[in-house]
């Protein structure tokens, strides 16, 4: 025997109420605004960053008064002029810029064959293995990975142990520039591979076969077919690696041992060692400026590549 209650289940009543509330709050004549309403929470969340940036800009305009250790009341550009006239900051800036360019180049060169093999291999097992080998370090985090390198490269570490077996005296492998760059390359490789892979997957395999059957060597096929078509992936990967390594903190701090500071380390020191908030804020703003400049330049030159979100991804 069916009661009317069962004929119209409770769940339907709830759904009716939800639908009615929804159409009361947002009538269908507003439907053109719906996507903007859906974007609103994300936009508000990101707004926190924008407000943070404004805060940084504000405090960068105040000079630290050395007698009271309070920021000055008046607005001044003194922090910036001091940064530009201090040789140390230029050294740090140059070190970070050069380092991030070298790391980006190395990452792209080594990530390319890895993603290529991962995308093209006919063996699902190999693909899964390559994916796991990629995700495991990606998901472990920078500090643990840097710690692993400390164990490997330390004076009594694995690398020196192996060198000792063939009779080579221990070498100081840590706390120098190459060690930091090496750590950064290892940190960035998964990012680079993951940004490259979708672009490579979008290249039809038939194109390569066609080039082959027309007599092109694999190297020619690579430079004339694969490389140009992989451009969106290279742009996306290059951008991510460049900006992340330019602004990295942990690798220079842990593997550089304080002697190989990047800009982020200099900023941290200004805030937490010298407690000169204005100076740190000015440095931060300069770094944000350099980063945005690099991103904007690449975007206008090459487009957003695989970084694009939403419909018009290429």
């Amino acid at each position: 025997m069916q009661t009317s209650k069962q004929a119209y289940p409770f769940r339907w009543r709830v759904m009716d109420a939800v639908e009615n509330t929804a159409s009361a709050v947002w009538p269908s004549r507003f439907s053109r605004g719906l996507p903007y309403l859906m974007l609103l929470p994300a936009a508000l969340l990101v707004l926190l960053l924008v407000i943070g940036m404004i805060q940084i800009a504000e405090s960068s305009a105040h000079r630290l008064d050395r007698s009271t250790f309070l920021p000055s009341e008046d607005y001044t550009g003194a922090n910036y002029s001091q940064i530009f006239s201090t040789g140390l900051y230029w050294t740090v800036l140059w070190r970070s810029l050069l380092g991030s360019v070298v790391v980006t180049a190395l990452c792209l060169v080594f990530a390319f064959p890895y993603s290529y093999l991962m995308v093209r291999t006919s063996s699902p097992l190999l693909r899964k293995f390559l994916l796991i080998a990629l995700f495991l370090p990606f998901f472990i985090g920078q500090v643990v990975r840097a710690y692993g390198w400390l164990i490997i490269l330390g004076n009594q570490g694995v690398a020196n142990g192996l060198l000792g077996l063939v009779g080579i005296e221990p070498v100081r492998l840590l706390y120098n520039y190459p060690a930091v760059l090496f750590g950064l390359v290892q940190y960035m490789l998964p990012f680079a591979v993951l940004m490259l892979a979708p672009a490579l997957a979008a290249i039809p395999e038939e194109l390569e076969s066609a080039a082959n059957s027309l007599g092109a060597s694999w190297w020619r096929t690579f430079t004339h077919i694969v490389l140009p078509l992989a451009k969106p992936g290279l742009v996306g990967a290059g951008l991510v690696v460049l900006t992340l390594s330019l602004t990295d903190f942990a690798m220079p701090a842990i593997l550089g041992g304080g002697s190989q500071d990047f800009i982020a380390n200099a900023i941290y020191d200004q805030f937490f060692r010298t407690s000169d908030q204005g100076m740190g804020a000015a440095l931060t703003l300069i770094l944000v400026g350099i980063g945005s400049l690099a991103v904007g330049l690449v975007f206008t030159l090459f487009g957003a590549g695989t970084l694009a979100m939403g419909r018009d991804r290429k």
């Binding site: 960053l49 805060q55 940084i56 804020a281 931060t284 770094l287 970084l307 419909r311």
Partner: peptide, 26 residues
């Protein structure tokens, strides 16, 4: 759409140290 994309990509284009310090001050 382009403006929204660039805006929503801000967490990636602003360096982590910048985001971190901005949020710390805020």
């Amino acid at each position: 759409e382009k403006t929204f994309q660039v805006y929503l990509l801000l967490p990636f284009t602003i360096p982590l140290i910048g985001s971190g310090i901005g949020l710390m001050l805020l």
